[in-house]
């Protein structure tokens, strides 16, 4: 018992030490603005890390509390539960929740103009387009099965001709040839595969007609009413962080090796690869996070193929106009 207490005490102290700058920051603003990320700390969120470290949120009068995600963190749930004010989601799950459960969500921006998810395969057994999947085994995270089915439908491929199995975020079965392809972030996995001594080839679902955003910025209708000012400040500071980061995608990951990326189990080279690869998917002529009318229409059309009844009303572009 005594030992447990000592350990706790020790951990508590370490936690306190780690939280010091955060506490100091919090003393200035009354309530922190809670931001739930959609995955663990990797390059996908570099723009926010830059904005936080450079003080952009503070300049905008925001006390940001950054919450890391993970495979079991359901971002939408954290904003319903009131644990977070704003989160990043995939539009298909968010809109399904709005349509089928009456969830009070609004999509107010999109980090990725083009969804980075795609089909990754080995160059020695390449799958270059949807029709190459016929007769093959494809590993897909269960939540993305609907997206893949929609892509197959758009490409006119019989769903029953593709063997879809669950994907558990480890590319080993692909590298060893147990599966022929997997669905993953094309900005990330090809690097790992190369490290393992194989050459990867990939295509985006986006390029084959399934044109949806990803990491859509989502808030509840309630928060949109009560914290509009903070939300605008968040988007403004985050946009600035992303612009700064994308100026040279190789610059920032190195600086975060001992802070944001510490102990994640991933390598900095991996983050640089990711950060570079995601640049064209994030940048937009109308500014980062923007949602053009054509893009929204493409989202609605693609989701309809997946059996998800999205409406223009689910997207709110007025917040971005204030940024």
């Amino acid at each position: 018992m005594r030992m447990t207490l000592n350990r706790r005490h020790f951990i508590g102290l370490m936690g306190a030490a780690a939280a010091m700058p955060l506490v100091a920051r919090r003393a200035e603003a009354a309530t922190p603005f809670n931001f739930q990320a959609s995955w663990i700390n990797d390059a996908e969120f570099t723009g926010y890390f830059v904005a936080a470290d450079k003080g952009y949120y503070k300049e905008a009068g925001l006390d940001l509390n950054y919450m890391s995600g993970g495979p079991d963190v359901i971002p939408e749930s954290t904003i319903i539960a009131g644990k977070a004010d704003l989160t990043l989601t995939t539009p298909d799950t968010t809109i399904t929740a709005i349509v089928e459960q009456g969830a009070p969500f609004k999509i107010i921006g999109a980090q990725y103009q083009k969804n980075p998810i795609g089909i990754v395969s080995l160059a020695k057994k390449p799958i270059r387009e949807p029709k190459d999947l016929i007769g093959k085994t494809l590993a897909v995270p269960p939540v993305n099965v609907v997206s893949v089915e929609a892509m197959l439908k758009i490409s006119g491929i019989d769903r029953s001709k593709v063997n879809i199995v669950p994907y558990a975020y480890d590319p080993t079965p692909l590298i060893k040839g147990e599966i022929d392809a997997s669905l993953d972030f094309t900005t990330n996995v090809p690097f790992t595969i190369k490290q393992a001594g194989e050459e990867a080839i990939s295509f985006l679902l986006y390029d084959f007609g399934f044109k949806i955003f990803n990491d859509t910025v989502v808030v509840t209708e309630e928060t949109l009413k009560t914290k509009r000012k903070e939300i605008v400040a968040f988007l403004k500071a985050s946009r600035k962080g992303w612009e700064e980061n994308l100026k040279d995608p190789t610059a920032y990951p190195k600086q975060f090796a001992d802070t944001w990326y510490k102990g994640t189990g991933r390598s900095i080279e991996n983050e640089i690869y990711f950060n570079t690869a995601q640049k064209p998917l994030i940048e937009s002529s109308k500014g980062i996070f923007s949602m053009s009318e054509e893009a929204i229409a493409a989202n609605i059309e693609s989701l309809a193929a997946a059996g998800i009844k999205a409406k223009r009303d689910h997207f709110d572009t007025t917040v971005l106009e204030e940024v």
Binding site: S68, G69, V73, V189, T264, G265, S267
Partner: peptide, 20 residues
């Protein structure tokens, strides 16, 4: 694994899974 914290063997495992 599901908690989204920064530290713990489960957290480390998530980050390492994608590395084959």
């Amino acid at each position: 694994f599901g908690g989204g914290g920064r530290y713990g063997l489960g957290v480390y495992l998530i980050g390492s899974l994608g590395r084959a």
